[in-house]
Simulated scan of single mutants.
Amino acid sequence: MSDKRLWKIKPVQNVRQRVLGGYLHELRELAGLSQKSMGKKVGIDLFTFIDQIEKGRVAIPEPYYDAFAGAYGVSSADFRRFCNSPLQSFDHHYTLLLASRPDRILAVSDQCW
C-alpha cells in the first residue's frame, strides 16, 4: 500500500480507537522505537501516520498488522486479537500481549526475585 493511499483512509473518531492508540503508543515506547523508526520498520515512510494512529485518529490498516506486531515484538495472532477486542477487554488483552514479549517476561520474573 503506498503512503498516498494511507492518507485516504477515513478518520476514526471514537473512544475505543483513542484508547487503543494510547496502548499502541506505550507498546512502541516499550520496543524502544521513535515514531520515525517505527514507520520505517513497518514500511510507512510518513512517520506522522504513526502519530495519527497513536492519537486514535486513524486505525492501523489491516495489511500492516503483521508488520506492527513484529515491530512491537509480539505475536501476530495476539496483536490481531488485541486490536480487534472490545474496549471493555483491552486491559485483559493488553496484559496477554505484554506477556507474549520474552523481554517483558524476564523483566517481571527478575523483579519477583
Rank of each mutant, 00 (worst) to 15 (best):
residue 48 T to H: 11
residue 30 L to P: 01
residue 10 K to L: 09
residue 42 V to K: 02
residue 27 L to F: 00
residue 12 V to A: 09
residue 46 L to H: 15
residue 39 G to K: 04
residue 21 G to A: 03
residue 7 W to F: 08
residue 11 P to T: 07
residue 20 L to I: 06
residue 42 V to Y: 10
residue 21 G to E: 04
residue 60 I to A: 00
residue 17 Q to I: 00
residue 49 F to P: 00
residue 16 R to H: 04
residue 43 G to E: 00
residue 50 I to T: 02
residue 28 R to N: 05
residue 34 S to W: 06
residue 56 G to L: 05
residue 7 W to R: 11
residue 5 R to T: 10
residue 4 K to T: 12
residue 2 S to Q: 11
residue 17 Q to N: 14
residue 26 E to Q: 14
residue 2 S to M: 08
residue 33 L to F: 07
residue 25 H to E: 13
residue 44 I to M: 11
residue 25 H to S: 14
residue 3 D to K: 11
residue 49 F to D: 00
residue 34 S to F: 05
residue 28 R to P: 01
residue 56 G to H: 03
residue 31 A to Y: 02
residue 13 Q to H: 13
residue 47 F to V: 08
residue 27 L to G: 00
residue 13 Q to P: 04
residue 41 K to G: 07
residue 36 K to Q: 14
residue 12 V to M: 03
residue 7 W to Y: 12
residue 16 R to Y: 01
residue 34 S to Q: 06
residue 9 I to R: 07
residue 45 D to H: 12
residue 14 N to G: 12
residue 51 D to V: 06
residue 21 G to V: 01
residue 19 V to W: 04
residue 11 P to E: 12
residue 28 R to M: 07
residue 40 K to T: 10
residue 10 K to N: 10
residue 8 K to D: 15
residue 15 V to C: 04
residue 9 I to V: 15
residue 14 N to F: 05
residue 25 H to F: 12
residue 39 G to M: 08
residue 43 G to A: 03
residue 32 G to P: 13
residue 52 Q to C: 09
residue 3 D to W: 03
residue 19 V to D: 03
residue 3 D to Q: 06
residue 49 F to Q: 01
residue 23 Y to P: 04
residue 22 G to H: 02
residue 54 E to L: 09
residue 38 M to D: 05
residue 17 Q to M: 05
residue 29 E to K: 15
residue 4 K to F: 10
residue 18 R to K: 14
residue 1 M to H: 11
residue 39 G to I: 08
residue 34 S to R: 06
residue 17 Q to H: 00
residue 29 E to P: 01
residue 14 N to E: 10
residue 24 L to R: 01
residue 15 V to I: 10
residue 23 Y to E: 05
residue 60 I to T: 00
residue 23 Y to W: 09
residue 55 K to Y: 09
residue 5 R to H: 13
residue 58 V to Y: 13
residue 7 W to I: 09
residue 57 R to Q: 14
residue 59 A to L: 04
residue 34 S to L: 08
residue 23 Y to I: 02
residue 45 D to G: 15
residue 42 V to G: 01
residue 52 Q to S: 14
residue 32 G to W: 07
residue 6 L to R: 02
residue 31 A to V: 00
residue 30 L to K: 14
residue 37 S to D: 15
residue 5 R to I: 08
residue 12 V to D: 02
residue 27 L to P: 01
residue 37 S to A: 14
residue 32 G to D: 03
residue 39 G to C: 10
residue 17 Q to D: 09
residue 30 L to D: 10
residue 23 Y to K: 11
residue 45 D to Y: 11
residue 22 G to P: 02
residue 56 G to R: 05
residue 2 S to G: 12
residue 10 K to Q: 13
residue 14 N to H: 11
residue 56 G to F: 02
residue 31 A to H: 01
residue 23 Y to H: 14
residue 14 N to R: 08
residue 22 G to C: 03
residue 55 K to L: 10
residue 3 D to H: 06
residue 36 K to Y: 14
residue 11 P to C: 01
